[in-house]
């Protein structure tokens, strides 16, 4: 029987197989999964914001793309994963509202989340093997260590496995 873990906003969970990692209702946030299918270890973060530079303090490492990626990798290595075998999948980063004619940098935070997460993965040398990002619809994601697939549910588009 797989244990299910619900990864809340700004949280980060690293587990050994068998397990299911779930994040509900991603809007501009990112559901990031990193896994090592040989050591059978996976981690998921629910990233809210691109970078921690403007923050006074980082209360939760999973909150920012630039802190979440290294934190998951470290935690996985501690559990016995190998960095060279790690692969990543991401989903989310939508823009829920469009307000024409308004200065709306804050509405495009989803796109910046995707960009920063992708860049952090590249920097750490982890291959991004699948992604489902952008658009204007929320997503719910579920990662299973049985087949290392990320199931993405989008309103009006149904389910897809990446």
């Amino acid at each position: 029987m797989e244990n299910s873990y619900n990864v809340g906003m700004a949280d980060m969970v690293v587990v050994s197989a068998p397990a299911k990692l779930i994040t509900l209702g991603l809007g501009s946030c990112i559901g990031l999964v990193i896994f090592d299918s040989v050591a059978k270890i996976a981690g998921m973060a629910h990233i809210m914001l691109p970078d921690s530079r403007g923050a006074k303090k980082v209360e939760k490492l999973g909150k920012f793309a630039d802190t979440a990626v290294p934190a998951i990798v470290d935690e996985m290595i501690k559990k016995g994963a190998s960095k060279s075998r790690m692969k990543a999948k991401i989903a989310g980063g939508a823009q829920m509202f469009a307000l024409p004619g308004t200065q709306t940098d804050f509405l495009a935070v989803g796109a910046r989340n995707v960009k920063e997460t992708t860049e952090m993965l590249t920097k750490m040398g982890i291959a991004l093997v699948a992604s489902d990002t952008g658009g204007n619809k929320g997503r719910t994601v579920e990662f299973s260590t049985t087949n290392w697939m990320l199931t993405v549910k989008t309103l009006g588009k149904g389910k897809s496995e990446i």
Partner: peptide, 21 residues
């Protein structure tokens, strides 16, 4: 005031907008 934006979606996804601010 900006023009209004409408969305039909999951509550959590909608509230991401303000959480990120």
């Amino acid at each position: 005031i900006s023009v209004p934006g409408v969305a039909h979606d999951m509550l959590a996804a909608i509230l991401d907008v303000v959480a990120s601010i």
